[in-house]
Design a protein around this nucleic acid. Structure first.
Lengths: 340, 340
DNA sequence: GGAGAAATCGGGAGCGCTCCCAATCGACGG
DNA sequence: CCGTCGATTGGGAGCGCTCCCGATTTCTCC
């Protein structure tokens, strides 16, 4: 490896000045085509790459996007949602020539340290934040700062730029499917109510029942925590109230629910039909294969990055709020296959 | 948010020069205790944070650690191994005040672009690389460059700094456990032979059988790909040869194998005992709960970072090669519980 | 008390780039 | 053929920090 070249040296090789090379590198106008050509050739030959640190220092922008995953999401981090999301994010970053910097926070101390780091905000041009719970102080903080950010997940505050799949419609869709199959006593296992997505999925469930004139029974609504264990526990409780079907707000919880039913000799979908949420790879492999609501996770990541970059370039003036549609994937656990 | 302060301004407030403040910030000697105190106080009051870009430019170091996950690992990325690893890495980076930058590569084009980016190597001080297959050109390339890196996963080349769990011993341990339980016809499902860990786990299996004087039957060795589907297929094949027990080289494959056996009316552990590898959360929740080899994944990530930082500070002179022990977690799938 | 050494401290130089303005080049009209 | 305006191009200034060396202060010992 030879020492890295500088703008100046490229200029010398091409017989032009530093400034002209800079214009070419940054695709700015005002360079004669012929000269541009010549410079480009030298750059290609030498493999010149501008020094990011110098660029950041002089240009006031880092070309880095930060991804924040707070402690509260660590539990979820073992499920494939985050890897998928990160794949999308990384892909979009690569495409736009941004680097991706990861901020995971493990302890409260970290979060404090974060605030400082984030505050100085010279580590990135903009932030992507995930999995914040309702009223997360991080969002408040960011809002009060001049840091550009996009939340991956819906936020009530209309000022917050966010990208999410439509949790309400997804759930609505799922429950309507169950109703169409003839079920009336439909239970649900929701995520924690501190999570807005969980609230919206529950709302979708309630609305679907309401729209069809089905009375909601409180006993059929169990609140859980998105984990398998939680799903097991919630389903065990629900079993006492003899539902005909259940809408479970995540695949992980469905796995637990499935085990609970197996342990109690309840057959799915024959005794109880189940519709899930997420469409993780394991949904296909479960016994029975899960009918589930698919979220475009990777796409969410990509859109998050694109939205952020758009904001970085064109300003955050009108808040960007993007809601992606979901799709119901019908497999075996709802019993639809056996009837058709 | 007020504009960020500079060293110079802090110096002014503390009544000292830029240089002295710099010494304090970087914990260098040669500052009178009293002065250091005074400067520290101003820094605390103002919340001053040095500008990373300026530091990088002037100091020739970025305080960034890069994590490379190549395309070949994308499939694996849906399993919880990576999230765990990343947690460890992020934690260690936070602790050492390094930023973490993620490089995921999706297409071959990306890998080319990578090489360029990586080559200029002004984006990070050192690299952590994961999941490279045997003979990965990336490793060759890095070795020929002067880029400092640590591979998370064993590498045959004694020049390569690497951190890994002991795949050979882990497998050996698992198979010996099975032998002790009285099984003789022990099959195995391995990962792809392009993966060194898979090779070593297979070696451990072979060695354990060999040491106990048990003849290895080729028919009892199935090669698969670490996925559930692969495990299902491999186990289906294996069933024809009537093994008494099976050592499966990953939890994901075990899940598939379990399904295959269930589909064929084979009971675990009554008809066939199973020992797995990884100890992912789902190992506990499988039916039956998996006896499996636990790898200290998070620890691996932490050690990877610490090793890299050590190299950055003290040079790569003697290659660092760290092998962590594994631990057999005995649960139900091996049938040990029923016998004790 | 003073020379010399050690401990501190200050400031110049420069990292490689962007921004901005002045200098140069070119073509056109009169 | 010269002046003029716009298209190009060059170079100064400076981003905030680290490195290094010389200046200043303080301490040591005879």
């Amino acid at each position: 490896m030879t020492a890295a070249l500088t703008l100046e040296q490229i200029g010398e090789l091409a017989g032009v000045s530093r400034s002209t090379v800079s214009r070419v590198v940054n695709e700015q106008p005002g360079v004669k085509a012929e000269v541009r050509e010549r410079v480009l050739k030298v750059i290609a030959e030498t493999g010149y790459q501008p020094n990011p640190a110098a660029r950041s220092l002089a240009g006031q922008r880092t070309r880095i996007i930060g991804l924040v995953i707070p402690e509260t999401a660590q539990i979820l981090f073992t499920d494939p949602y985050f890897p998928r999301l990160i794949q999308g994010i990384a892909q979009a970053c690569n495409a736009s020539d941004y680097a991706l910097s990861l901020f995971l926070f493990h302890t409260t101390d970290d979060e404090v340290a974060l605030s400082k780091r984030i505050a100085q905000k010279q580590l990135f041009d903009g932030l992507l934040i995930t999995a914040t719970y309702i009223g997360d102080p991080l969002v408040e903080y960011l809002l009060s700062s001049d840091i550009r950010f996009v939340q991956l997940g819906y936020n009530d505050n209309p000022q917050v730029n966010c990208v999410d799949a439509d949790n309400f419609s997804g759930a609505y869709q799922a429950v309507v499917h169950l109703i169409r199959l003839g079920f009336r006593r439909i239970a649900t296992i929701t995520g924690p109510m501190s999570n807005l997505a969980a609230v919206h999925r529950k709302d979708g469930y309630l609305q679907a029942l309401g729209d069809r004139g089905i009375l909601v029974e409180d006993d059929l609504v169990a609140t859980s925590d998105y984990t398998q264990e939680g799903g097991y526990q919630a389903m065990t409780d629900l079993l006492q109230h003899k539902p005909e079907a259940v809408f479970v707000a995540s695949d992980a919880m469905s796995l637990g629910a499935l085990r609970a039913m197996r342990d109690h000799g309840v057959s799915v979908p024959d005794d109880i039909a189940l519709v899930s949420y997420d469409d993780l790879p394991l949904a296909l492999l479960a016994e029975p294969a899960l009918t589930t609501v698919r979220q475009p996770i990777k796409r969410l990541g990509i859109l998050g990055v694109e939205t952020l970059i758009d904001i970085l370039r064109n300003g955050a003036k009108p808040p960007r709020r993007i809601i992606l549609p979901t799709e119901l994937v019908v497999r075996d656990s709802c019993g639809a296959g056996r009837r058709s």
